[in-house]
Amino acid sequence: MVWLAVNLFKDWSTFLQLSFSGLTRGSMYALVALGYTLVYGILELINFAHGDVFMIGGMITATFVIQVFDLSSHPSMSSLLPVILISLAVAMIGCGLLNATIERVAYKPLRSAPRLVPLITAVGVAFILENIAFIWKGPRPVSLPPNTLPTSAIFTLGTCPKCATYRWDQLFVLLVTVPVLLGLVWLVRYTKRGKAMRATAQDKDAAAMMGIDVNRTISFTFLVAGALAGAAGVIFTLYGTTIQFNTGFTLGLIAFTAAVLGGIGNLPGAVLGGLLIGFIQDYNEGLSWHAPGSAWTNSIVFGILILILVFRPQGLLGEQTPEGG
């Protein structure tokens, strides 16, 4: 806190700038973290492969932008919008189906096995997905043309060079994440499917007795989680303009940390945790006064994860199943 305050005092424009990018990054983490939390809430399984499903979503986007539509840098709005919409649709559906298939093939036969068995399987699936992407796209990062999203400023605070700008691509990320988040809240809180999900998370046997098809509900949860990861993959790739076969694993772990930070199984918690981790990461990497820098990002994030798990395993908002919505 003191550190943040000193930094704010010393260089408010950088601080503000980093807050903007932290918010953007955090909202993407939130989407991925929600997938972890949904699955954990219903199955008590850390779905290691989730980060790689996200990465596949990014690869789908890269394919559409580079191969299918062949966008140049600074594309016009009319050529950009359909690409975004189509890749969003394809990535969300594709990743949702992929995630549900993984559940069917790899996790469902292990429902009654000891708890660590599906976890180990999930690690295996993560590696398989990574290598599929490796075969598909090769070892090098796939780069989109620069400035695929417009990076001009929406508004600028202060006078440059001491200024903070909020850019269009950052707004675009929020334009995707916020509706998706609202849609998820609506789905979990107000629809019959959502009710079934909450019931299954609370007590599978009782839910089954009430006539809920537990297996279908679990599949549906994986579908939703995969779609969230797919959406996150699309905006991550468009915003960062680069994606690699192993991006998903580290990012998945960071997002998992976010989910644990907010309280695993807790949907608002995942969003809060995602935003917090996003801010922390950007402050760490950008601030000038006594910031450890990007070389230590993993250590800081995992340090937070370890501290949270050891001292407050229920997370900031409390561990719960999606019933709190």
Binding site: L45, I46, R115, L119, N298, S299, I306, L309, V310
Partner: peptide, 21 residues
């Protein structure tokens, strides 16, 4: 010492974190 009190899957994640650190 600090981590072995955790449940199995949390322990797995924490060990992973230590490995990465």
């Amino acid at each position: 010492l600090p981590t072995l009190r955790l449940r199995g899957d949390y322990l797995a994640i924490v060990t992973l974190g230590f490995g990465e650190i």
